[in-house]
Structure formats: structure tokens, C-alpha cells
Design a protein around this nucleic acid. Structure first.
Length: 379
DNA sequence: CGACGTGTAAC
DNA sequence: CCTTTTACACGTCG
């Protein structure tokens, strides 16, 4: 794990851009891709806004109602069409993978590439490769992307975000500390609202202060793992490898037409979610062990109930267990706003510690012991 | 240690 | 009055 050359590639306002390509008459207008919850006409949130729309203050996460107030006459609001984006994404990800020694897709529109070998650790070659990839995506799909090139995933991610859209930012090892020090703590990838608030309470307000922070103090607040992770980030250090993503869980969640604590109403809704889940179980040929019920109540607090069973692929098991879990939850009735279902604990896939899960017979004999992933594996 | 539930974060 | 999906860490309990 000497010096590496890592790319982070981010497709620019992906959903909105794909929509524009499909409907050229939208070109030049503010375009807002929405997740409608179906409660009322305009309930829901913005998934992606193109740059024209962002100028109006419309961005991801804004409620559709508010976005409509911010929008002008020509602003176009469209529902997400995930099926379609997935197809486009798949083609681009295949293209990216072909340009990498190691490849890791992290979401529908983002990926890490380890290109250390094919660039012979030469940043000039890396830069050319970056532009080559940009051109390929532009030529084949008509889309732009932003690329960050750095010695590790964390810094590459920060770099791809630095100049966009259509950016390419290279951070050589010797510039890493300066580059990372230029951000506010809450801008660092992986540090969210809660963590920044905690850090402020500890008197840590800048990246520099964090980098020189007291490990013991950070440990007392965050635990050893996260403390080391934070210190690593502040120094732009991240040893986590670029490795293929494997599916570890599948979930489906949705919003009820109205809040209710009626078993039948909720379970009918759950049945629909299960249908979709089963569809994916079949196409992925998965066996699973754990079924979870996800409940979001009227105060938007999330609760989960789960049960683990002997390894199965039987869709009926999902229904039966969820019925029981929902009954349990409604023992003391509480109005429900949103519900979700999840399966996890898959067979034939490596678990996090490299252990495999027991097969059919359910006699779970231990598999070979393996060293704990070390704390230097950030992220 | 496995199962379960929660918290944090990002998309 | 507010989506969806996934990952992973951590605490607790038996």
C-alpha cells in the first residue's frame, strides 16, 4: 500500500442531465427531478436540480412545495425515472471499470478507480487518462463528469467535489495537507452535522486543530475507531482500498397515503413493497436470513424490528415474518407515516469480516478466524 | 459471539 | 409536514 493513484468520478447533476438528454426541449431551462411521496399533489422532495435550477436556490432535499415557490415560469418539474437512469448508469460504470485496475461503484452516479498500475504512478499519465475518460463519457452518453485524482479515496472525493461541473482536480501527495486544510470541518466527506457539532463542543473548529487534536480526547467522545478516522481525514490519510461493492442488504420503503395504526392498511402497503423486494431476490438469486420492518412514525422517528431465520430464498417467509413484526409493533398502537422492509444477512457473499454465512442446514459452524480489520482502514 | 436496535452519513 | 437506499459502527443482551 505504497503510493496510489485514485480517481473519484462524479457524474454532474446526473438525473437532471439524463432527463435533459432525453428531452432536448428542456435545454437551458431549470430542471428539477422530484421524488413525489403521493400524499398530496406536491408532497415530496427534490432529488436533483440542474445548475439553472440551483441558481434559483433549488437543490437536493428541498421540499417540492418550497421548490415550486423558488422556481420561475419556465422551471420544469419531473418525477424520477429510476429505471431509465439505472440503464444509463450501468453503461457508464462499465466504461469506467474498463479504465481501472480496481473499481468500486459507490452510488448510481459515483465511482472510485484505482489506476496506480496503468498510470505507473505518474500523475501526468493520470491526468491524460482523466481527460480520456471524460471524453469517452461525453462521446458515448453526452454527459459531463467531475474527476478528483489523489493518493487515496478520501482526498480524491474531496477533489472531485472541488471543481464542478466538468472539473478535473489533481492533488499530489505533497499538496494533500494544504488542500484538506482549506476546508471547514463540516465540509469533509464523512463528517456530518452530529460529528461537527461534537467537535465544536470539544473546542475543535478547524481542520488544523483537528489534525493536531488530542487522540485521547477524541477517543473519549467518538471511540477509538472513529477518533483515528477523524485524525486521518484531517491529515488527508485514508488507507481504505478500492474494492468491488457487494450487496449486503436490500430494502424498500414508502410513504402511506395518510398516517394510520391500522394493521390491515399498513400490511396491504407492505405487501406491495414485498413484491418489489421479491423481484430483486429472484433476479439476484439471493438467499437471506434476516428480515426487518422499518417504521417511521408521525414524529419522523425511525424504528426497526427484525428477525433472523434459517437461510432461505422463500418469499413467503418474508411475508410471514413481517406480519409478525408489524403485529408486534402495533401491540401498543402508534400512528405510522412511512414503512419499509429490508432483507439482509445474505448467503454466498462475504460478510464484513470475511466470514461466510452458514448454508441451509443452519448448523452454523464457525469459519476460519481472521484478523480484525485494522483501525488504519479508514472509511 | 450472534442477534437486535439505534445512530451517523452519504446519495 | 420531510425521500430512498445502503453501509457500517456501536451498545446491549443473552
Amino acid at each position: 500500500m505504497e503510493d496510489r493513484v485514485i480517481f473519484h468520478i462524479d457524474l454532474d447533476s446526473f438525473f437532471a442531465s439524463v432527463v435533459e438528454l432525453k428531452n432536448p426541449e428542456l435545454k437551458g431551462k431549470p430542471v428539477v427531478v422530484c421524488v413525489y411521496s403521493g400524499r398530496t399533489k406536491d408532497s415530496g422532495i427534490v432529488s436533483t436540480a440542474n445548475y439553472k435550477a440551483r441558481e434559483l436556490g433549488i437543490r437536493s432535499g428541498v421540499p417540492i412545495k418550497r421548490a415550486k415557490k423558488l422556481g420561475n415560469e419556465e422551471t420544469i418539474f419531473l418525477p424520477v425515472d429510476m429505471q431509465f437512469y439505472k440503464k444509463v448508469s450501468k453503461r457508464i460504470m462499465d466504461l469506467l471499470e474498463a479504465h481501472a485496475d480496481r473499481f468500486q461503484q459507490v452510488s448510481i452516479d459515483e465511482a472510485y478507480l484505482d489506476v496506480t498500475e496503468r498510470t505507473k504512478n505518474d500523475l501526468r499519465l493520470a491526468e491524460s487518462l482523466g481527460y480520456e475518460i471524460k471524453r469517452a463519457i461525453q462521446d458515448t452518453e453526452g454527459l459531463t463528469c467531475s474527476i478528483g485524482i489523489a493518493p487515496n479515496k478520501f482526498v480524491a472525493k474531496m477533489a472531485s467535489n472541488f471543481q464542478k461541473p466538468d472539473g478535473l482536480t489533481i492533488i499530489p501527495q505533497e499538496k494533500v495537507i494544504d488542500f484538506i486544510s482549506g476546508f471547514r470541518i463540516e465540509e469533509l466527506h464523512g463528517i456530518g452535522r452530529k460529528t461537527s457539532a461534537s467537535l465544536i463542543e470539544l473546542g475543535v473548529t478547524t481542520v488544523e486543530e483537528l489534525r493536531n487534536g488530542d487522540l485521547k480526547l477524541l477517543e473519549s467522545r467518538f471511540g477509538k475507531n472513529k477518533a483515528l478516522d477523524l485524525l486521518g481525514k484531517a491529515s488527508g490519510i485514508d488507507k481504505s482500498p478500492v474494492k468491488p461493492e457487494s450487496i449486503k442488504q436490500i430494502s424498500k420503503i414508502g410513504t402511506l397515503k395518510e398516517d394510520t395504526d391500522d394493521f390491515g392498511t399498513v400490511f396491504d402497503y407492505i405487501d406491495g413493497l414485498i413484491e418489489e423486494l421479491i423481484h430483486r431476490v429472484r433476479e439476484l438469486k439471493i438467499q437471506f436470513r434476516t428480515i426487518s420492518l422499518i417504521i417511521i412514525d408521525t414524529s419522523l422517528k425511525m424504528e426497526t424490528k427484525s428477525q433472523t431465520v434459517p437461510l432461505t430464498e422463500d418469499p413467503q417467509v418474508i411475508r410471514v415474518i413481517l406480519k409478525k413484526l408489524l403485529k408486534d409493533y402495533l401491540k401498543n398502537p402508534k400512528k405510522i407515516r412511512r414503512v419499509g422492509v429490508k432483507i439482509s444477512n445474505f448467503a454466498n457473499l462475504k460478510g464484513k469480516n470475511g466470514k461466510t454465512f452458514p448454508t441451509k442446514s443452519s448448523t452454523s459452524r464457525p469459519v476460519s478466524k481472521r484478523k480484525q480489520s485494522s483501525f488504519s482502514d479508514f472509511e
